[in-house]
Each structure stands twice: as structure tokens, then as C-alpha cells.
């Protein structure tokens, strides 16, 4: 099942394309969220985001990873890559969503186990696009940040 919520591009950064940043592919669990935030922040800064945007990218990555830790498998994997003027952040885990407490991310088609839903609400506020795929193999959330000119 896949849900996608896109909005007219909310551009971040100073208009510089994120050329040439090395992709990030990092496993995480509760004890390594700090290291994950540091790695994401470094990549976002290298991609040309400003200070506030680096913080927002980091905050969204943390919330998605924390959701996987708290409500999913307890661990997961985060991938960050720049492509065609966008920065993509994908968080996946192989856990199962609980039957209760699930929160619809936008159009209500895909449940995501998030207490209060505030992490996903934040993601919806500051990203350019949010998509969630949920199935027997687990949950994958992908968010997109635009770096094109405002």
C-alpha cells in the first residue's frame, strides 16, 4: 500500500543544486539516533542547505527513525541521496504497524504507527513531498526536500 502526499514545491536552501554529495546509507537503533542525526546534518549541509533547513532535514529524519525505533522493529535503515534538485530521505524498518494507535499520514490510505502523529505532522510541514509504503515486509517512508530556487 502506498500513500503519497505532494505539495507545490516548498524550496529549501539557497538555490544551489545538491551536486556531488555522497549518498548516506546508515542503520540505526535507539542507541545510535544521535550519530544518525549528525550524519544527516553533515550531508544536508554539504548539499547546500542553510542552517535552519539543515535543522529541519535532521529533525524530520530523526522523527521518522524514532518512529521506527519506538513503534516499528526497534531498528531500521536510513538512506539519504540527492537527485535532480531534490534531497531524498528514506527510512525503512521491517516491523509491523500496530492495529491501534495508527495514524494516517495525509490522505488516510496508509497507517503509520506514530504516537500523537506529531513527527509525521512535522514531516508534512517542512518537506516538499511525503510518501509511505506499508506492507508485510515493513514500512518505508520517503520524504523529499527541494533545493531549487525559491
Amino acid at each position: 500500500m502506498t500513500a503519497e502526499e505532494g505539495r507545490p514545491g516548498r524550496a529549501l536552501g539557497d538555490g544551489t543544486a545538491p551536486a556531488g554529495i555522497a549518498p548516506l546509507d546508515q542503520a540505526f537503533d535507539a542507541g545510535s539516533l544521535y550519530a544518525l542525526r549528525a550524519a544527516v546534518a553533515a550531508r544536508a549541509a554539504a548539499a547546500g542547505f542553510g542552517r535552519r533547513e539543515v535543522y529541519e532535514v535532521t529533525a524530520v529524519a530523526h522523527e521518522l527513525a524514532a518512529n521506527a525505533v519506538i513503534h516499528g522493529a526497534g531498528h531500521g535503515r536510513l538512506r539519504l541521496r540527492a537527485d535532480d534538485g531534490f534531497l531524498y530521505c528514506e527510512v525503512s524498518d521491517d516491523g509491523q504497524a500496530p492495529a491501534d494507535g495508527a495514524v494516517a499520514p495525509g490522505n488516510g490510505t496508509a497507517p503509520w504507527p506514530a504516537e500523537h502523529g506529531h513527527g509525521l505532522w512535522l514531516a508534512g510541514q517542512v518537506t516538499d513531498q511525503l510518501s509511505i509504503s506499508h506492507g508485510p515486509g515493513g514500512t518505508t517512508v520517503t520524504v523529499r526536500f527541494a533545493l531549487r530556487s525559491r
Binding site: A66, H116, H118
Partner: peptide, 9 residues
């Protein structure tokens, strides 16, 4: 330097 959603709330 960082505060997550739960602590912010």
C-alpha cells in the same frame, strides 16, 4: 542544539 517532537511538545 536539537530537540525532538516529543520533548518539544
Amino acid at each position: 542544539a536539537f530537540i525532538d517532537a516529543r520533548c518539544s511538545l
